[in-house]
């Protein structure tokens, strides 16, 4: 779809054609961007390399927000023939008041972690939307909800693991289930009803998925602590469901208004974004000053090439629109 700002697509004279797809590159693309031969994961033929969405939500005839979402398989997973382990999900509540978004990053070491991410993103978003039919976001029982998602992943995991020789799927400890499928997760609830032009947002995260608000002027404002700051050598341990979080999840409350964007992402894009002050921060702030015209364009931007960043990348971004 084309955003109204873009104007109509001009007709091309009969018998001619135009248009091209060019990859986005930030700085040195590295060798992997051009050199990787993408392989399928032969254990999961139905798992898509890239998924994307682009839509607006309306109240009556007025647009309230523009939403863009994409999940792109990383170069490393393409090179080694592994599925995309990231997933996203969203739901508008039945009464139309809230938009629920989930971004999930399946833990790399688990061979079925993409299933955990799918359960958290789709099942979790549906459930959260259901809760919001009778509860205000500020009163949501987040701890109970997160533990419920963990149980949902654990139960489905045990079903998926049935018939294995290496473990008893019914009786084994949840940690053994988590070794095969686990996911970090972020849930956001966006109030579609703006007060003085601002939308209230509640965000809860387990693990290293992150929420940002891209403020006016291209400033990236993190809504959680940024991971791995100050560590001596890099250690990739993360909190992930179905293991229950060590502490009760605390929602972060923020607001977003027209001219800004709420950007929810997995670490595949959070890592190169860093604190948002480097070249990737500038690039994404430039291209996301307004919602990109299409989901395809958005996915292309998320898939930018930059040396040594080869993880799966998933972003759901929400741009409030001045109601017109």
């Amino acid at each position: 779809m084309a955003a109204p700002e873009e104007g109509p697509v001009r007709p091309v004279p009969e018998g001619k054609w135009q248009g091209y797809v060019e990859p986005f590159v930030v700085g040195d693309p590295g060798r992997a961007a051009a050199g990787v031969v993408p392989l399928p994961d032969e254990s999961a033929w139905d798992r898509k390399d890239t998924v994307l969405d682009a839509f607006a939500l309306r109240e009556g005839r007025a647009r309230i927000v523009e939403v863009r979402a994409a999940s792109v398989r990383g170069l490393a997973h393409r090179a080694y023939g592994k599925v995309r382990q990231d997933e996203y999900g969203f739901r508008r509540t039945a009464n139309g008041r809230y938009l629920v978004v989930c971004v999930a990053d399946g833990v790399s070491s688990g061979e079925l972690s993409h299933k955990a991410a799918m359960i958290a993103a789709k099942g979790g978003a549906r459930w959260l939307a259901g809760l919001l039919d009778r509860t205000e976001p500020a009163d949501l029982p987040w701890g109970q909800f997160i533990r419920g998602v963990a149980v949902m992943i654990e139960r489905n995991g045990r079903k998926l693991l049935r018939g294995r020789d290496d473990l008893d799927a019914e009786k084994c400890d949840v940690r053994e289930v988590a070794q095969r499928l686990a996911t970090t997760v972020l849930y956001a609830v966006i109030d579609l009803h703006a007060v003085d032009g601002t939308h209230a947002v509640h965000v809860v995260t387990v693990g290293d998925t992150s929420a940002w608000v891209l403020r006016e002027g291209g400033r990236w404002e993190p809504q959680e602590a940024v991971k791995n700051d100050g560590a001596e050598v890099f250690s990739p341990t993360v909190h992930a469901l179905p293991l229950p979080p060590a502490t009760e999840p605390v929602p972060v409350r923020t607001t977003v208004r027209a001219g800004e964007a709420l950007v929810l992402m997995t670490d595949g894009i959070g890592d190169p974004l860093g604190q948002g002050t480097g070249p990737v921060g500038r690039f994404l702030a430039d291209v996301w000053e307004r919602p990109p015209a299409s989901g395809l364009e958005f996915a292309g931007q998320i898939g930018f090439a930059r040396k040594s960043f080869d993880d799966d990348r998933t972003v759901v971004a929400v741009w409030p629109v001045n109601g017109r």
Binding site: D271, L273, G274, Q275, S308, F309
Partner: peptide, 9 residues
Amino acid sequence: MESEKAKIL
């Protein structure tokens, strides 16, 4: 200093 997190082995 850049704020990114490229991994080096």
